[in-house]
């Protein structure tokens, strides 16, 4: 494992400075996602809109992170760490599972664009953001055992009520929301980068 780690570091050329950057940006990203994600828990309507506005707000952090990325591996690592932190804060393990596939895919897309090309950046962020769907997976798929328990004792109408509360098409809507939110986030992020960070000499 240690040997693998060292070999990986050498091969990817990720420096200690890069690793510290990944850590700092992971915290910033998770804070934005976490703080605004919690708003959703308080205000029901926001829960439905969350998949849209969370990637839209986090876009500025991600775009800023990309200005520090010039080699494959950093975005993958970032994604996996975000996934593990989401898991650690009591959300579902679907996020890290998705992150293992989506973050390297996004990383690869960014790499194809040389970590510069704008279309690649938007598409990559769109792919990356899809890992957040993992947060709501249990709402749609973990009710099975719940239903199994109650349907034995109660009539079909009750069970139907519950199914109606979380219709399957809502899942597709949320995926679309995430995609739209990511595109908006990329553009908003770029605008804020130009308005603030580039002018301030950061990023």
């Amino acid at each position: 494992m240690a040997k693998l780690g060292k070999g990986l570091t050498v091969k990817l050329g990720i420096t200690t400075k890069n690793l510290i950057d990944v850590g700092v940006f992971t915290v910033l990203y998770i804070v934005v996602v976490g703080v605004f994600g919690q708003l959703g828990a308080l205000i029901p309507i926001l829960q439905v809109l969350g998949p849209f506005y969370i990637p839209a707000l986090a876009g500025v952090v991600f775009m800023l992170f990309l200005t520090r990325v010039d080699r494959f591996g950093m975005v993958s690592l970032f994604g996996v760490l975000v996934g593990l932190l989401v898991l650690a804060t009591g959300q579902s393990y679907w996020v890290p599972v998705l992150a293992v596939f989506l973050a390297p895919l996004a990383d690869f897309i960014f790499k194809l664009g040389g970590y510069k090309s704008w279309p690649h950046t938007v598409l990559g962020y769109l792919v990356f953001s899809q890992m957040l769907i993992g947060m709501v997976v249990p709402l749609f798929f973990a009710r099975e055992s719940f239903l199994a328990k109650i349907s034995g004792r109660h009539d079909a109408a009750w069970v139907q009520t519950l199914v109606d509360l979380t219709p399957n098409w809502m899942f597709a809507v949320m995926i679309a929301e995430l995609a739209l939110g990511a595109v908006v986030g990329a553009y908003v992020g770029r605008a804020l980068l130009r308005k603030h960070f580039e002018r301030a000499g950061i990023g």
Binding site: A2, G5, L19, G23, T26, V27, G73, L77, L81
Partner: peptide, 19 residues
């Protein structure tokens, strides 16, 4: 024996949450 790749970001994350 986790690689640096994991240890350093993990330490930075823990260090930066309070920051």
């Amino acid at each position: 024996h986790l690689p640096r790749l994991a240890v350093i970001p993990a330490a930075v994350i823990l260090r930066f949450l309070p920051t």
